[in-house]
């Protein structure tokens, strides 16, 4: 067995186990940590496919930022009371979504691109998939790329608009004013005799 094949099976096993743990563990923090492990092993699998740029990006963006915030929220949940309620109506919806996903994956796997004989050609030595990806992304797919960026921007503005509450009683610091304060504004030296309160 080639070393790559061995690694593939190793990562594949870890990935499946971690993904299974992420949906079955009752403790939400443990589930989130399993999700991180499964993302990380997925990144390692991409690395095996010589897509090191995408692989590191997966680690950087998803594990390094998105899942940190995910954990941030999940950790706020009280520790010894896992609050995952088993509701029947959720189960029906979940099964429907899962069925659709399985069907889609099956169609993708049956496509000729995924057949064992469709091995990619070995890349030439000076080939950089980072450059290749960049040139495709900013030329052939520039419009789709821009559209995705605009969609994200709309999502950001929407999220802020939904959560922004303007509270009239809210005390706000003004850093510019704070840093302009001088000694004379705050401190008054007297000669030590008691004064009538002003």
């Amino acid at each position: 067995m080639a070393f790559q094949t061995l690694l593939f099976y190793l990562f594949g096993t870890v990935l499946l186990a971690a993904a299974a743990a992420a949906v079955t563990l009752r403790n939400m923090v443990h589930a989130a940590l399993s999700l991180i492990l499964s993302f990380f092993t997925a990144a390692m699998l991409w690395m095996l496919l010589e897509a090191e740029f995408l692989s590191i990006l997966l680690v950087l963006v998803y594990i390094g930022a998105v899942l940190v915030l995910f954990l941030f929220v999940v950790m706020m949940v009280e520790r010894h009371t896992p609050t995952i309620h088993r509701r029947r109506n959720y189960r029906i919806v979940a099964s429907a979504v899962a069925a659709v996903m399985v069907a889609e994956l099956g169609m993708a796997l049956l496509a000729p691109d995924f057949s064992p004989t469709a091995q990619p050609l070995p890349a030439p030595l000076e080939y950089s998939n980072t450059k290749a990806l960049g040139s495709v992304l900013y030329t052939d797919y520039a419009l789709a790329f821009e559209a995705a960026a605009v969609a994200l921007l709309v999502a950001i503005v929407g999220a802020i608009a939904l959560t922004l509450r303007v509270r009239p009683d809210h005390h706000r610091q003004n850093p510019a004013r704070q840093s302009r304060v001088r000694k004379q504004d705050r401190l008054r030296l007297t000669d030590g005799r008691s004064e009538p309160p002003c």
Binding site: I56, L57, V59, I63, G64, S128, T130
Partner: peptide
């Protein structure tokens, strides 16, 4: 090749 990204990814993992 992606050394800079690798470093950035690893420093972001340190938060965990």
């Amino acid at each position: 090749d992606a050394g800079l990204l690798y470093v950035l990814a690893l420093t972001s993992l340190g938060a965990y």
